[in-house]
Simulated scan of single mutants.
Amino acid sequence: MGDPATGEVVARRVLQLIAGFVGLAVLPLVVAATMNATEAFRTASAGHLPADDLTDHIVVVGLGKIGTRVLAQLCTTDHEVVAVERDPHARGVALARELGVPLVPEDAGAPGVLDRARIRHSKSLLVLTRDDGENLDIVMAARETNPGVQGVMRLYDDDFAATVQRTLRASYPDAPTRSRSVSALAAPSFAAAMMGRHVLGVMPVERGSLLFTVVDVAGHPELEGRSVHEAFREHEWRVLAVGSTSGHPASSSGDTLAGIRFRRPGFDWRPPHGRVLRAGDRVVLATTRRGLDILMTGVQPHPVDRRG
């Protein structure tokens, strides 16, 4: 085509035109075949797709730092797992290949990708990418395909997570929708340990947490010399049990709320409201993060007007 045979016989010119058109028609086919071969090689190198008869499995979307740890933990159980990750260089891709976990190396938000992960037949979905909005979109798309799937999504922004929780509860009133802040749950225990307090347990409450801790009454004007009823402070702490400091260390790394309740003698779990707390007493408290901060630092916050 670049050197037309204009001065040649008609048969040669016709043959040249036919060869040019055939070449133009074959070129896209060659490019398409090359692209398909490249994609097939990438898919095969990343991992194998889930079997056509796979059911009751868990789909994990996102194999970053958190997704990799979740994948490793799930693989220690009897659950079947399918991973979805669009980045072939993500840290969890090598782990999935090593553990033989079926992997769909595509964007979970693209049409048909969740179907290839057999989301219709799965029982749970964990969406753990870094994009809050994308995580929500993936979960909602999965719920449209499989209304019975149990979805867990990672939401970093606290306000956005609270809004999502309210919206989902209004949209699915019968679903057990829960929202938890990992930092909110971990921070009180970390801060208490730094200040020498021992947290026996943490109970998630909406986006916050309720803490159970052991406190010596001595040195706490909010407790010492007050009755159990007077020591109660709304939205901050409540005395659950009263014991003695004699014979019991202030804290033990093996203590839990159940352990204090059932294994350690000497705690009265139904103290009279008029029982006055003395310097030699030790109490088990249910506190909020705000209440624990007051007990640890002794700094009284500004009063909050709760009438509005």
Rank of each mutant, 00 (worst) to 15 (best):
P271A: 02
A170F: 13
E234M: 10
V82L: 10
A25F: 13
A94H: 00
A11H: 14
L211I: 08
L277E: 02
T177E: 04
I119A: 04
M195S: 13
R12E: 09
H229I: 06
L114T: 02
R261M: 14
V149S: 08
A51E: 15
V127C: 02
Y172R: 11
T68G: 02
L17Q: 14
I66W: 02
R226P: 07
E206P: 04
R166K: 10
V113N: 00
P221N: 15
A46F: 10
L15I: 13
V10S: 11
V152H: 15
P271M: 03
G20V: 08
L54P: 04
D305Q: 06
S124D: 10
T77E: 05
A51D: 15
P111C: 02
S246V: 13
A51Y: 08
R233P: 03
A83M: 01
F21P: 06
D159P: 04
P303L: 08
L295I: 07
V22M: 14
I18Y: 11
L211R: 05
A184I: 11
L223C: 08
L223E: 09
D78H: 14
V30M: 03
P301A: 06
G298V: 03
V26G: 00
M153G: 07
C75I: 01
V164Q: 08
H302G: 11
P28I: 08
R12Q: 15
T287S: 13
R233T: 06
T287V: 14
T129N: 03
V199E: 10
V284S: 01
L27D: 12
P105I: 03
R166M: 13
L155Y: 02
T177P: 03
P105W: 04
G133M: 08
G208D: 09
E144A: 11
V104T: 00
D293R: 11
L103A: 01
I18V: 09
V93M: 03
A83E: 01
E230M: 11
D157S: 00
V304R: 12
T38L: 11
P176V: 08
V139E: 07
V215M: 07
L63T: 00
V242D: 05
E222V: 08
S183E: 09
A170M: 14
G148F: 13
D78S: 15
R143D: 01
A187Y: 10
